[in-house]
């Protein structure tokens, strides 16, 4: 069995996902949380690519494209929100003060 087998790719995806989740849960900075989410999305994309390789199907890459566009849209909106927060007097980008958004 080759080391480049889909199973190993899935292992890597799992690891990346766990690390990304760790970042989302542990970091308080919204920018860093967004980056961690990017890692998690990439882990999912890797899982799709691996599945495509496992069955030798192009659908895996099709789904990768979907995830790509999702990540692009998410980054655009998320970053816009961060800019907005920053300019609205929350330069610390502290996620834990998000519950004080109202008003």
């Amino acid at each position: 069995m080759s080391a480049a087998s889909p199973t190993h790719a899935l292992l890597l995806a799992t690891l990346l996902f766990a690390v990304g989740m760790l970042g989302v849960l542990a970091r308080r900075n919204l920018l860093l949380m967004l980056m961690s989410i990017e890692i998690m999305l990439n882990a999912a994309a890797l899982a799709f690519i691996a599945a495509g390789a496992r069955w030798h199907a192009a659908q895996g890459q099709v789904m990768f494209l979907m995830i790509l566009s999702l990540a692009a849209a998410e980054a655009a909106v998320g970053l816009a929100i961060i800019l907005r927060l920053h300019s609205a007097g929350r330069p610390t980008l502290d996620a834990d003060t998000g519950n004080r958004l109202k008003g």
């Binding site: 989740m21 989302v24 849960l25 308080r28 949380m33 996620a95 834990d96 998000g98 519950n99 004080r100």
Partner: peptide, 13 residues
């Protein structure tokens, strides 16, 4: 329902 995003993410996880 504390309104803290990280708590919510934690619960989801």
């Amino acid at each position: 329902q504390s309104g803290q995003v990280r708590r919510y993410a934690g619960w989801i996880a």
